[in-house]
Amino acid sequence: MTTESNDNDPRVSDAYRDLASEKTPPELDRKVLSMSAGNERTRYGLARAWVRPVAWAATIGLSLAFVLELSQVQDRTPVAASGSDAEVLDEAPARAKSNGLLRQELEERSDAPAATVVTSPPVLEQEPALDRDSVADEFEADDMSLVHEAEERARLQSGSSEPAPAAAEIAAFAEKKDQALSCDADARSTAETWYACIEELRRSDLAEPARLELELLLAEFPEFQEPDPDT
């Protein structure tokens, strides 16, 4: 018969009592009693205490980044926002992209950040001057005439005989080129002048800007009938 006395031997108990006489370290006593009075968190409680604020901070940070990104996207599409046609809205970013191609190309070649070149003239003065010849080789003759024009104008504005910094010239050139890639407000005042401008773009082998301008024209003047090219 098995009884509980078989599970309990006084000699073993005594030997164990003799062996196990450790006391709780005083610093542990202090910590636990301090915890009991609500003065101290547990080690794991302390780790958990970080989780919530960090999660909140991350959520707020991500939300702000998302809102900023959204607002920037809206800023980049002013034409699309003013138009009523959904198709125009869809095409607007592509048009903006097309208009900015040359500027982007110039900026990439000059290894200068886009925002710096266009919006921060004081910084431009500190930028290293570009090798004018190497830039000039990249453009065709008509492009170079624009460059020279910008150079002349910059020289006149600064009132000095020294040539203006090359980055400023390129920025001015890019601006002019942008204008050349699209029709201005005067051209867009009537359907006929607008279409004439589009024809001009086509003749200049700028098929994509011409197509975009035509779409804008049709959106603005739905009644406008494009003349048959054969007639």
Partner: peptide, 9 residues
């Protein structure tokens, strides 16, 4: 020590 604190916590 660690478990002891956790228990009393």
């Amino acid at each position: 020590d660690d478990i002891f604190q956790e228990v009393w916590g």
